[in-house]
Each structure stands twice: as C-alpha cells, then as structure tokens.
C-alpha cells in the first residue's frame, strides 16, 4: 500500500430494498487529487459520497482512510479532522451570524464551555476572519447568514471547511442551486483553496463541463457501477455519450 493513498475503496456494495445503489466499487485516491464524480441522476454519486463520509454504512466491502478502516474511526471529532463535507447551501444555520457558522468548523476542537462562550464573544476570531477573506467575503462577518445570497452562503461553507482543515473534502453537488457564473466561482475557489491546503477533493457534479475544467480525474458512475475512471484528458465524447445515454437506447444499441 502506497503511503500516498489517502482513500482506498475495496469492493463496496449498497442495496436499497430491491435497488442496487452501489455494486462492488473499488478505486484508490491519492493525496491531493481532485476527483469529480459524474453520471446520470440516480447513478449512486450521493450514496457513494455518503458512504465515504460514514453517514451510510456499506452492505459489504471496506473503505480505508489513510490506511485506517473508516468503520473504526467512530469518534466524530477524529473523523472531522479527516473528512469535511460541503453540500448545497442548506448546510448553514441561517439564524446565526456568519462568523459562528465559520467557527463551527472549530467545534471538533472546542469543548462545550468554549463553544458556548464563543457565541457571546467569538473565539479564534482571527482564524475566522482570515478564512472569510480567503473566500472573498471580508465584510460580512457579523451579518445574519440567512441574509446572504446563495453564492455567498456557499462561500461561508467554504470558509468553515478552511477552519475545520480536514484532509479530505467531500462535495455533494456543491453548485447545484447556483447560476453558472456563481457556480464556476465557487468551484474555482474550492479547488484553489484545496490545492493551497494540500487537501484531496471528491466532488459529485451534474455538469461534465465543470468537472473537466476544475478537476483532474473523472470517475463516471452508471447504475451503481464505475463506467470509467480516467484522467480528464483521456475522457472522450464517446464515453460521455455512453454515460448519459438513456436505458432504452442502451438496450437498442445492444441489439
């Protein structure tokens, strides 16, 4: 096992009732890689990310994070230092001021008393402010989070990840509810910051165009299986066509 392998997925499967969500997936991700998960709706992208985040337990197979079995990292706080998650913008607590949503990334390190005091007198204020500066929101520190636009809220979520400093960032459709200009902006910021911090990113995306532009490796899922797993430059239009083809057409092609 190479020391650079931060994620090793060995034959994980997951079934929901009669439906197969993931069927015996295996792949390895090296430290610092920028991986995009693509594929049609219902292909298993979210299930895979939730499995990696230990929100869902696979029916079989194992996941190694830094050589450690994910099932053995049961402590929420230890796990938070390894894995950070960003989703669509409903992830933040709208009623809190921006700074507290950012400092939530510190909760794994703070005890109860310190986190309580911080709500009245923000602790580690400088960390939060510099994180907000890096994501381009320097002047919104004390605003109520729900007053920010969708793109700004996603930046706050990025700032929280900066404060949390996990080794791996799992991004589940991070730009699904944003317009194209803001989506590109967020993806650009996410990948730039992750490169600066030496973090590994696995992001599920609807848009192949964004995946090709901001990521270095594409893993394509279809019906719970890996259709292809290639560096961006090797992904051809034929492969993409096959990936997004509807089932009916698929069968016709076989006949």
């Amino acid at each position: 096992m190479s020391k650079n392998n931060i994620i090793e997925v060995n034959q994980i499967s997951k079934h929901y009732e009669r439906k197969i969500a993931l069927s015996s997936l295996s792949f390895v991700v090296e430290k610092g890689e920028m991986v995009a998960l693509i594929g049609p709706s219902g292909a298993g992208k979210t299930t895979l990310l939730n499995t990696l985040a230990a929100i869902i337990e696979p029916d079989s197979g194992e996941i190694l994070i830094d050589g450690l079995d994910l099932r053995k990292i049961t402590n929420q706080k230890t796990r938070a230092r390894k894995i950070g998650i960003i989703r669509q913008q409903f992830d933040l607590v709208g009623q809190l001021a921006v700074i507290h949503n950012v400092l939530a990334g510190r909760l794994s390190e703070w005890g109860f008393v310190k986190s309580f005091i911080s709500l009245l007198f923000p602790q580690d204020k400088q960390t939060a402010i510099s994180a907000l500066e890096r994501v381009g929101l320097p002047d919104k520190t004390y605003e109520r989070t729900s007053k920010l636009s969708g793109g700004e809220q996603q930046r706050v979520a990025l700032a929280r990840l900066l404060v949390q400093r996990p080794e791996i960032i799992l991004a589940d459709e991070p730009v699904a509810s944003l317009d194209p200009a803001r989506a590109e902006d967020i993806l650009e910021t996410l990948t730039r910051l992750a490169r600066e911090e030496g973090q590994t990113v696995i992001a599920s995306l609807h848009s192949v165009e964004y995946a090709k532009r901001y990521f270095t490796r594409l893993i394509a899922l279809k019906n719970g299986e890996i259709l292809f797993d290639l560096p961006v430059e090797k992904v051809t239009d034929e492969l993409l066509k096959e990936l997004y083809q509807l089932k009916e057409l698929d069968q016709n092609a076989l006949v």
Partner: peptide
C-alpha cells in the same frame, strides 16, 4: 431541518454543541 444539523455533526460537533449552534 436536518441538513444544518448533519453538517454540524460532520464538522465534528457533539450533541450539546449541535444544540448550541444548530
């Protein structure tokens, strides 16, 4: 709503911290 709470859990917050921040 569940989403913000799950996000807090994922960033390492304990149940009591989720109560305070979520």
């Amino acid at each position: 709503p569940d989403e913000p709470i799950e996000a807090l859990r994922a960033s390492g917050a304990s149940r009591l911290q989720c109560l305070l921040y979520g």
